[in-house]
């Protein structure tokens, strides 16, 4: 079942334009000039129930604007949106009751109070019945391991602890869709991993649809099944993460260790990432040269001790896509 349907969505902002200097400042006061900026330009996509979707793009690509339109914060300039069968701009409150949001840069928790007070307030706001609230809270406390944090004022929590509480807060009313905007921003590796596990768990257990924006390629690689890439307000790619990894780039990373000293490899389609006397990391473009050829080349002296072949990290793939779109060839 479709739970998000977006058609020809466009959002433009009007901004004042001013040239440099005092004279121009005066001029712009008397006769301001305006320019329209298209933050999101004619995008269409759908998300199915239970899907985990990554929404990726550089700063200013239109990610946040899109997510804000999907949640009813901003009104579209043009096009149509249907989230859980509702138009977010018209049915903001009805929709809000059925979705959860974690915006990494904004907190739902009261800074000076312990999370449990904020939870209680949110349960009221979302009209969660009392007994349901108790059992739900118990479940979330156990899953997110936040029992010890409930009574500590939020200002005294670490960022990782706070994010866990934020996500728990957004799940109190059992949302059908969870919007996560940069949920792992600023977190260390261990906490990031934990958060990712939790997101996956929620998706599996309740079939909650996850719509996630992130800068962190790891987030996408580890949790998402599908990735949509947006740049300059346009969707430049909409693929399964698997396909993205295996098909989009014909790149492999070969790491090898040697028994004896070796000479740096030099082949068309092979870039050296790192090379020492006894080890090398190579970036292989399989369109230009086959893996087979590269392996034969480096093992021809018979001194190969160990070899691993990996896909390139997600980060690199995304970077490459951006480079290609910037060059005008998606």
């Amino acid at each position: 079942m479709r739970c998000i349907e977006v058609k020809d969505l466009t959002k433009t902002f009007t901004t004042k334009v001013k040239q440099e200097g005092f004279k121009q400042s005066l001029k712009s006061m008397i006769k301001p000039e305006y320019a329209t900026v298209e933050a999101v330009s004619n995008i269409s996509f759908t998300v199915d129930e239970g899907e985990i979707m990554a929404f990726i793009g550089p700063n200013g690509a239109g990610k946040s604007t899109t997510i804000k339109m999907l949640t009813g914060i901003l009104h579209p300039t043009d096009g149509s949106i249907s989230v859980l069968g509702l138009d977010p701009a018209k049915k903001r409150r009805q929709l809000a009751a059925q979705i959860g949001t974690v915006f990494g840069q904004k907190s739902q928790l009261w800074f000076h109070l312990p999370p449990t007070d904020s939870f209680r307030l949110l349960a009221d706001i979302y009209e969660v019945p009392k007994d349901e609230y108790t059992s739900r809270l118990n479940y979330l406390v156990e899953m997110f391991d936040i029992g010890d944090l409930l009574k500590t004022p939020v200002r005294k929590l670490s960022l990782g602890q706070r994010v866990r509480c934020e996500i728990a807060a957004s799940l109190l009313h059992q949302p059908k869709i969870l919007f996560l905007d940069e949920p792992t921003i600023g977190l260390d590796v261990v906490v990031k991993q934990k958060i990712r596990e939790l997101i996956l768990h929620i998706n599996k257990e309740y079939n909650t649809t996850i719509f996630l924006t992130s800068h962190d390629a790891g987030d996408i690689e580890k949790i998402c099944k599908r990735a949509m890439i947006i740049d300059h307000g346009k969707i430049v790619l909409d693929e399964s993460v698997k396909k993205l990894k295996y098909d989009y780039l014909n790149m492999k990373i070969i790491s090898a260790r040697f028994f004896e000293k070796q000479k740096p490899v030099s082949m068309d389609g092979v870039k050296i990432i790192k090379s020492t006397d006894y080890a090398a990391s190579l970036h292989v473009d399989t369109e230009k040269v086959s893996i087979n050829e590269v392996i034969s080349m480096i093992s021809k002296d018979g001194n190969l001790a160990d070899i691993t072949i990996n896909d390139p990290p997600m980060e690199e793939i995304i970077l490459d896509i951006f480079k290609k779109t910037a060059a005008g060839a998606p």
Binding site: K68, T71, G72, I73, R92, R93, Q94, A96, A97, T101, F103, K106, S107, Q108, L122, I125, Y126, E127
Partner: peptide, 17 residues
């Protein structure tokens, strides 16, 4: 600051909220 978002994301009337 855009902090109004937090209030807009809740299923209650914005201004009283």
């Amino acid at each position: 600051t855009g902090e109004l978002d937090t209030f807009l994301l809740q299923p209650v009337p914005v201004l009283p909220n």
